[in-house]
Nucleic acid binder design. Structure first.
Ligand SMILES: [Mn+2]
Ligand SMILES: [Mn+2]
Ligand SMILES: [Zn+2]
Ligand SMILES: [Zn+2]
Lengths: 157, 157
DNA sequence: AAAGATAATGGAAACCATTTTCATTTAGGA
DNA sequence: TCCTAAATGAAAATGGTTTCCATTATCTTT
């Protein structure tokens, strides 16, 4: 799994985790570890397969449970790109990447993060959110923006 | 199911359906009928339950198959609001409502269509799409925008 | 450093929306 | 009306996710 040399994000999240009344366990630390190392959008099984060689005792069930908690705590986001399984990614923050949106290729399933063009989008979203909040008395805490189409590789064929 | 007095959207879609090499059947007409009558976002089973009293012979399987075709033809959109089942809605067009985005309540699951604030959004999206297309050589044909939060009713409690 | 209370775990089974299979029926051109 | 490929329903299969429950591990209290 390649800790490299440091402690992984375990230490960092330890507090946040415990602060919410959860215990810190090997499995939970491993999941966080994998997620913070990853640069793709991982499924529960992806995470399981990365953890398993190192900690064979940790089961898929626990990974699902940990992911649920992390989503609720707000440390990760859960996405459905339409491939039949949920995918997870660290939220923006100290250890997370910056807030971004997604390009989803309907040909090969590739998902591209983009962080350009975001500033304007977010500015407009703020305005839109304000309008919607007022009109519908709807408290918005999150948004999802995805573009669907064909990626470079799929365009060529 | 309440045809009222007309023929439903069957006639209208008959051509489009046949034009793509598909045969027109009672079940397919019924699905289109229900979808065009609906003002909510229906699941396959929702549609089945509306059709069943009138056409008990039509099975859920066929409804799934019809919905797949309609999505591919582009007559309907398929959404995942995170409730564990897909939901469907007529695309914009002669018989469909106008293009819109969604507010999804994480409390009660309600989904609100909004058509205000769309013009500006779409304008920005166009611009964003152009930028992304160029940068990633990604051909965008669709987008998904959803806001998550708490609806009026859920805010009060 | 132990013990106790209770949260967390893994493996198997259950769940459940959707898909596949396949024998039968149907639509629609000839 | 006939014919053939497309469409269908019922049942079984699929596969990601959840639930169950007996066992284990964490962390607080001694
Ligand atoms: Mn991403
Ligand atoms: Mn809608
Ligand atoms: Zn692609
Ligand atoms: Zn609500």
């Amino acid at each position: 799994m390649g800790h490299g040399h440091g402690k992984g994000p375990g230490q960092w999240c330890h507090g946040k985790f415990r602060g919410c009344g959860y215990r810190m366990t090997t499995g939970r630390e491993a999941v966080l570890d994998v997620l913070s190392q990853a640069n793709e959008h991982l499924s529960a099984e992806d995470i399981y397969m990365k953890i398993h060689p190192v900690y064979p005792a940790i089961g898929l069930t626990s990974i699902y449970r940990t992911l649920d908690i992390l989503v609720n705590i707000g440390l990760i986001h859960k996405f459905d790109f339409g491939h039949g399984r949920a995918r997870y990614e660290l939220t923006e923050g100290p250890k997370g990447k910056r807030h971004h949106h997604h390009l989803v290729c309907t040909g090969c399933g590739r998902v591209i993060d983009y962080t350009d063009f975001i500033d304007e989008e977010v500015a407009l979203l703020k305005k839109t959110e304000e309008g919607l909040s007022k009109k519908y008395n709807f408290r918005i805490d999150n948004h999802l923006i995805q573009f669907y189409g064909l990626c470079d590789a799929c365009n060529r064929s």
